[in-house]
Design a protein around this nucleic acid. Structure first.
Lengths: 119, 119
DNA sequence: GCGCCTGCTATCTTTTGGAAAGTGACCACT
DNA sequence: AGTGGTCACTTTCCAAAAGATAGCAGGCGC
């Protein structure tokens, strides 16, 4: 038998196991908008509106949901500045910076290899 | 103005541009099942049933759809062996092998860093 | 014939994605 | 005082996708 990825114990985990919690994490990260949002925040914190402008075509609802999920899982931080024109800043946590490496690998692969796609 | 990723011309592409065809490709690849399927085929061709067993929890309908989309976009090859017990083999194309590098980066990141997630 | 294998397809239900409009606080213009 | 703009969303609605379950057609062993 291969790894069953016992929940709770720090076994070595397996994304191929249905019960493994890392399946949920893969589902969260292996997503168009999550990959783009994390990439956009690589160069520093951004506000909601600026993120929406960079992730061309995202609706505010989907952006909110994406950011909330990433925040809940510890990939990014949401800071509210209650100063006169109130604004909210999103920034990568240490974990977010860490995961941005493989994600930017995927993004740049797509940009560099698009021409090789016939369909 | 930044890159508009003109369709047809071989500009440098931009995943952040809504109109860029690479957005569709990112959407295809930044997906739980696609990432797992490509990873499963890294070590050689597999048949439908074996893929279904490895991608624990996938339904045949979703597996078929995933494989079809990946085939249409040139990431994998579907070979039918009409020999007596007929079977179908799925294997990575050159492009599939190429994209499996960043995808395995993402998968292994998840497996290695799961313990750091509090939620 | 029965039950297993193969590789799917069909149906149904639930979940998600995406478009559009609204909210409410603030500011600036006229 | 009214119009319009920015900010950060929420709400509503609908269509598309995901997921669970069942079925099907052919071949094989017993």
């Amino acid at each position: 038998m291969t790894t069953l990825c016992a929940t709770g114990k720090h076994d070595h985990h397996d994304v191929y196991a249905a019960q493994c919690p890392c399946r949920e994490v893969l589902d969260l990260l292996a997503n168009k908008w999550a990959a783009l949002a994390i990439g956009a925040l690589e160069d520093g914190p951004l506000r909601f509106g600026e993120l929406q402008r960079r992730l061309q075509g995202i609706s505010p609802k989907v952006l909110t949901a994406t950011l909330r999920r990433l925040e809940e899982n510890g990939f990014l931080h949401r800071e509210i500045y209650p100063a006169v024109p109130l604004h909210v800043e999103y920034s990568l946590t240490e974990l977010g910076v860490s995961v941005s490496v493989p994600l930017s690998g995927l993004r740049t692969w797509v940009e560099l290899n698009l021409d090789k796609l016939t369909a």
